[in-house]
Design a binder for these strands. Structure first.
Length: 293
DNA sequence: GGTAGACCTGGACGC
DNA sequence: GCGTCCAGGTCTACC
């Protein structure tokens, strides 16, 4: 079946796909050359389907591998709306960016949206898996987690959805450590899975735009394995741009851009974007870095 | 509030 | 092939 969804303009599927590294992480399947994007999705009914995304004149078209019930279709449309931020308004960002050469083209290229996973549970786990490791390690750990705990697509069992909190919680930290090679992150991932599965932590509530950013950040930082960088990254995904996800790459970029290659710390990164106030995270994200250094 | 050291893995490197 | 070193954020203990 096919689902067509309109998006607030400007919208570019390609720009959302290329907004960060998430398409390289299962259960996304991405071909860089063609920008073809697939995703294995598990609905709350337990139905597992493949989603095939295509650009459409005013939004997004999604080919679904199987027929769905009305309730499943409604759930999937809500999920897709969230993942691609279809109704997000970046008008204020574009207005502010005018006159800044390093942000030239953000509006013309429809930049602003950051690709999300279906759930904040998935985005939080993936963010934890980006910490203190190379990107290749993130890909490896995430793939192992999906392979070990993800529900399979009936027609092609090798394709699996992202694990549910319950499936990970049913395991134990030693299995996570030894089988999926999460290392010291294993107890963090298990603890989070257990808290979400048991209902002690409602991550999806953090999507509520009425909750103050400071409160969202406080709750994110209370999660073991989520520190300043991870919280800022998740806030970006949630559409809140008050904080910059400062990692070694960020410090290196700021060093090259403004300090002639001299080592800098988080304070210098903060200072570089301070004037952009509540938009600083998005400005940092889409900054046209000087690659010559 | 700031800082040092430990955490875990894979990759690079030298032998 | 083996051993060593290093990079990557967060947590905990300590000052």
């Amino acid at each position: 079946m096919r689902i067509e969804l309109a998006a607030r303009q400007p919208f570019s599927l390609q720009q959302v796909i290329r907004s960060h590294g998430w398409p390289q992480l299962l259960p996304f399947h991405w071909e860089r050359e063609s920008d073809a994007l697939l995703r294995v999705e598990r609905l709350t009914t337990g139905t597992v389907v493949v989603l095939n995304f295509h650009p459409m004149e005013n939004g997004l078209a999604v080919e679904v591998s199987d027929e769905l019930t009305d309730a499943e279709r409604a759930e999937l449309e809500t999920t897709l709306d969230w993942m691609f931020g279809l109704d997000m308004d970046f008008g204020p960002f574009y207005e502010m960016a005018r006159g800044e050469p390093k942000l030239a083209g953000v509006e013309a290229n429809a930049r602003g949206r950051v690709l999300r996973s279906a759930t904040l549970w998935e985005d939080t786990i993936k963010t934890i898996l980006t910490t203190n490791t190379a990107w290749s390690g993130t890909i490896r750990m995430n793939a192992a987690l999906v392979a070990q705990f993800g529900d399979p697509l009936p027609a092609a069992p090798a394709m699996q959805a992202f694990p549910t909190p319950a499936s990970v919680a049913a395991s134990d930290p030693d299995t996570l450590r030894n089988t999926t090679k999460l290392g010291y992150r294993a107890p963090y991932v298990h603890e989070l899975a257990d808290a979400v599965a048991a209902g002690r932590l409602d991550l999806e509530r953090l999507k509520d735009p009425a909750m103050p950013t400071a409160e969202v950040r406080k709750r994110l930082l209370a999660i073991k394995g989520v520190g300043g960088y991870a919280a800022a990254n998740l806030l970006m995904i949630l559409g809140r741009y008050d904080f910059i996800p400062i990692d070694s790459w960020a410090m290196n970029q700021v060093s090259q851009e403004w300090y002639g290659g001299q080592p800098v710390g988080p304070k210098e990164v903060e200072a570089a974007f301070e004037r952009w106030e509540e938009w600083k995270g998005l400005v940092y994200w889409w900054w046209d870095w000087d690659q010559s250094g």
